[in-house]
Design a protein around this nucleic acid. Structure first.
Length: 483
RNA sequence: CGAGGUGUAGCGCAGUUUGGUAGCGCGUUUGGUUCGGGACCAAAAGGUCGCAGGUUCAAAUCCUGUCACCUCGACCA
């Protein structure tokens, strides 16, 4: 009976995922100390454990950017109103969510300054000064920074007023190069999402309705959360010469002619952390993919007061560290082993290595893998190599589980009723005529939006009439409710 | 911006209907016993009840206003 009570109190730490997904998410992020609410409306504080995940994502992304010849820069946080206003579509898209600086100290400013919601405009302005000739091209710059958008409703990591991200901005001499850049950055994002974050994604092109304000074409990767809703996890835009014309970014070509540059931009944000939580988390809390887990393995001394236990743990700690595993020895003597088990499971550490007197007698350790919540016994000898294999296996398992879930919840639909039903549950793959009126109606009826159109349309073709209006249709597209 | 909800100790809440000494659980601190799945005992610290005004002998409680946050919409990179 006492046991039952205890069980209930443990369960009470997190709202069951099955009961209330939204509350589960909030409970998990707060209790794992990834972030916290602040006195600033819609803005969160990212705590050390959450920021460590972001740093891992940054490292993985940044090294790949650099391999692609992208260089990092830093642009001002404030953008003069006149500069922001130069490209009409862009302004219209962002105006409702811009925060303004109106005063410097006690003096009212001559011209308001926008807190950047994104930095296309300032990059354009600077590119127009920096580029002269075709020999200067391409220019491929990126910045890691925060931006601010005055969102009406916010959720930690998924949509906050201020958020951390990277924004890459490139300019090219030809449309072909710009398109190639746009697609190769999307591919880079897909690779990081799937191989590093274990997030299966659908990549494809956005409809005109859903594309970025001022873009000729927008491509995205879309992940499915455990409630069946879509999360746009990264975007890559091809602006053509749209911004170049508005901001007068010209260069002299080989033929001696003045031409506009072809421009791209692409970004991912701390939203990816939200995606990891909502994709891999379970009833016990987080499950972090080993590649980005700040702590990959935690060593837990059992009966630490018994002779030899702590020493063995310290030795193992040094060995695993030397082998390149991000390991932590939890030698707190203020909490029980049972508490630590739950604590590290909540925090999603991929493996836990238990070292107790009984293990040491037999020259083994007890290893718990967080993905399957299973315990296995491994020999102490050569443990580092065994753990590396195990971590690789966990990475794969998390990806496979997420992919199986997504695939199961993605269904081809052929009429509006089927679509309406399917988007309650997951992604609907359908044929679409290309008319925005159909997207509007689907949004109106089911609160679902088009996500993107797969690149290999022929391979995904699933009919020839529009899911909404029934007219002739030649586009395959995914619909879903989205975050 | 619309609908609903919540503001009382670090956290979670009761108390508000019917005004009358500020409560409970968890956590924290100290000491002791424990230690292979969220330990136990004892003692202690901690709150101008979101904020402002009003009614009253007396307000966490009633009235007016206001702010913040949460959920669901609407809006949206």
């Amino acid at each position: 009976m006492a046991k039952e009570e205890k069980k209930q109190s443990i369960a009470a730490f997190i709202t069951p995922r099955s009961e209330d997904f939204s509350q589960w998410y909030t409970d998990v992020i707060i209790q794992t100390q990834l972030c916290d609410y602040t006195p600033v409306r819609g803005c969160m504080a990212i705590r050390p454990y959450g920021y460590a995940i972001w740093e891992r994502i940054q490292q993985e992304m940044d090294s790949r950017f650099k391999e692609q010849g992208v260089e990092n820069v830093s642009m001002p946080m404030l953008i003069p109103e006149s500069l922001l206003l130069k490209e009409a579509e862009h302004v219209e898209g962002f105006a409702p969510e811009v925060a303004w600086v109106t005063h410097g100290g006690t003096e009212k400013l001559q011209e308001r300054l926008a807190v950047r919601p994104t930095s296309e405009t300032i990059f354009c302005e600077m590119y127009s000064r920096w580029v002269q000739t075709w020999r200067d091209l391409p220019m491929k710059y990126n910045q890691w920074c925060s931006v601010m958008r005055w969102e009406k409703s916010t959720r930690p990591f998924l949509r906050t007023s201020e958020f951390l991200w990277q924004e890459g901005h490139t300019i090219h001499a030809t449309p072909e190069e710009a398109e190639e850049e746009t697609l190769s950055m999307l591919e880079l994002y897909r690779e990081v999402a799937e191989d590093v974050l274990a997030l299966p994604v659908y990549v494809g092109r956005k409809s005109d309705k859903e594309k970025f304000a001022g873009a000729r074409a927008t491509y995205s990767m879309e992940a499915m959360m455990q409630d069946g809703k879509a999360l746009q996890a990264g975007t890559s835009h091809n602006f053509g010469t749209n911004f170049a014309e508005a901001y007068n970014i010209q260069f002299q070509s080989k033929a001696g002619k003045l031409e506009y540059v072809h421009e791209t931009s692409w970004g991912v944000s701390t939203r990816l952390i939200g995606a990891i939580i909502m994709t891999h988390g379970d009833e016990r809390g987080l499950r972090l993919p080993p590649v980005i887990a700040p702590i990959q393995a935690v060593i837990l001394p059992i009966a630490a007061h018994k002779p030899g236990v702590l020493e063995a743990c310290e030795k193992l700690n040094a060995e695993l560290k030397a082998a390149g595993i991000r390991v932590k020895l939890d030698d707190r003597d203020t909490v029980s082993a049972g508490f630590k088990f739950n604590d590290w499971e909540l925090k999603g550490v991929p493996v836990r290595v238990e070292v107790g007197p009984r293990d040491l007698e037999n020259g083994v350790v007890t290893v718990f893998r967080r993905d399957l919540c299973e315990k296995v016994t491994l020999p102490l000898e050569g443990l580092a190599d065994a753990l590396k294999d195990l971590l690789a296996g966990i990475q794969k398992t998390l990806y496979n589980q997420a992919k199986a879930f997504r695939d199961e919840r993605t269904k081809t639909v052929s009429n509006i009723d089927e679509l309406g039903e399917q988007v309650q549950n997951g992604f609907a793959k359908a044929m679409w005529c290309g008319d925005q009126a159909c997207e509007d109606m689907i949004k109106e009826k089911f609160n679902a939006t088009s996500r993107n159109m797969p690149f290999d349309q022929e391979a995904h073709k699933c009919g020839d009439t529009c899911v909404c209006c029934g007219k002739k249709a030649d586009k395959v597209i995914y619909f879903a409710k989205a975050y």
